[in-house]
Design a protein around this nucleic acid. Structure first.
Length: 417
RNA sequence: CGGGGUAUGGCGCAGUGGUAGCGCGCACCGUUCGGGACGGUGAGGUCGCCCGUUCAAAUCGGGCUACCCCGACCA
């Protein structure tokens, strides 16, 4: 992509009202624009990063046996009344049509998927089954905040598992814990698996928390990894804080965190109201056991920026960067530009996605924009580099001079990773 | 939902009653070209909305709306 043609430019300044790091940097770098409070538009750079995140999550869900679907956002009132959540779900957007029909704007999808899947589950032979989607969710939050961290419309992956019994449900639940940790690792986040309340869903749940100043939750955890609990379910958090870990990992720490994922053992909570049953081997009806597993895709994007940035801009993990490399020329002499065009065209042909800053602006501006946008590799062609390309990683000081062939080879190798 | 703050060219801001300004960006010309270059010329504003006070309102008063922050709430 040529920067000069890109929809979405960087900006130097942003209102002093915008204080969260992710909103500031993503807006300045041209990734997102706010529509209304808690609702964002994603520009091409932003969508590329968002799609990279979604794709990693998709791959992991597929590996875990998930089948992808796309469920409706606009949902009839009737099923929400069956679960009692038309009244009790505080953040539910309720819409009144001019034709005297009422709808919910989907904040979650048990009310859609459970009746839907009941058509296809009739025998123990149909179980277990795992269904997920990646879709915009709507929640009428009392207060949207911190850019992408808490919005009223946001992209979420929600997987629902259906099992014959509790044992099978819990086995999958345990398996998904590992899948989640691995998924967040691939996204460049080290998430702490944390015991938490189950809300109106279940007795308990597990949250995946990333240490982050702008997070809304607090947890107490052992750095050795054998304990983590949300302070909301701890009776005397003050007492636990700084207590020595039983296994000798040092003292327990209390930290602010942002929740990027949450898993719940739902058991029969939703199969009962919708009479989701199957015939067991003895021909008797049994309720299906369910689990549900969420990851906030757009929130993950915000958290990545909160965690990976410096004073100059974003530092994307390679796995989610909008482009593989940021290529720019320093002087605008005809010969340099011709050479750069050739390199760019070659890379395009090899299927390597780079952002090529082809503008006729000062070097300082190009460097500043490259830092702000935060693509992991910066490639410079100039009279100084001659027939070579300078390669610099966004998060390192070191610069290397590579021949054009070497640079292309390295890009191809990295692409395979 | 309670408390606090903000609202002025595309963006960021200044402007305490008397003809609406600055920086950035944008357009054109010239000089620059390894860390947000410089000079010149130019376009661009119902000062969030409504009502009021006044000879006169961006500026004072009342109401409303939107956004940000703190808290409460939170699948």
């Amino acid at each position: 992509m040529k920067y000069s043609k890109l929809f979405g430019k960087t900006i130097k300044e942003i209102s002093r009202e915008e204080t969260s790091v992710n909103a500031k940097l993503l807006t300045r770098a041209g990734f997102i624009r706010k529509e209304v409070a808690g609702v964002y538009n994603f520009l091409p750079l932003g969508l590329r990063a968002l799609n990279k995140i979604a794709q990693i999550v998709r791959e992991e869900m597929n590996k875990a046996g998930g089948q992808e679907v796309l469920l409706s956002s606009l949902q009839g009132k009737e099923n929400w009344e069956k679960t009692g959540r038309w009244e009790s779900f505080d953040a539910l957007f309720r819409l009144a049509s001019k034709f005297e029909k009422e709808y919910a704007l989907g904040p979650t999808h048990e009310e859609v998927l459970v009746p839907l899947i009941s058509e296809f589950i009739s025998s123990y032979r149909d179980l277990p089954i795992y269904v997920y989607q990646i879709q915009n969710k709507f929640r009428d939050e009392a207060r949207a905040k911190a850019g992408l961290l808490r919005g009223r419309e946001f992209l979420m992956k929600d997987l629902y598992s259906f099992h014959a019994d509790e044992k099978n449900m819990m086995e999958y639940y345990e398996k998904m814990k590992k899948v989640y940790i691995n998924t967040f690792n691939r996204l460049g986040l080290s998430a702490i698996e944390t015991r938490a309340a189950g809300g109106t869903f279940s007795k308990f749940s597990h949250e995946y928390q990333v240490i982050c100043e702008s997070g809304e939750d607090q947890i107490i955890y052992c750095p050795g990894g054998d304990y983590a609990e949300n302070v909301e379910i701890i009776e005397n958090p003050e007492k636990l804080e700084n207590k020595q870990c039983d296994l000798g990992h040092g003292s327990l720490k209390r930290v602010k965190v942002a929740e990027v994922g949450n898993i719940f053992p739902l058991k029969n909570k939703f199969s009962e109201p919708f009479n989701l049953v199957y015939k067991d081997k003895d021909g008797k009806d049994q309720f299906v056991y369910m689990g549900c597993y969420g990851i906030g895709i757009s929130r993950v994007m915000g958290v990545i920026v909160e965690v990976h940035h410096d004073e100059n801009g974003i530092i994307w993990p390679r796995s989610v960067a909008p482009y593989q490399a940021h290529f720019l020329t320093v002087n605008n002499s005809r010969s340099t530009i011709n050479k750069a065009e050739k390199i760019y065209n070659n890379l395009q042909k090899s299927g390597i996605d780079i952002l090529y800053d082809d503008r006729e602006v000062s070097p300082g501006e190009k460097f500043a924009d490259a830092d702000l946008i935060g693509i992991p590799a910066r490639l410079v062609l100039s009279e100084k580099t001659g027939d070579k390309i300078e390669w610099k990683e966004r998060n390192k000081e070191k610069k290397e001079l590579l021949s054009i062939e070497e640079a292309e080879k390295r890009l191809k190798e990295e692409k395979e990773l």
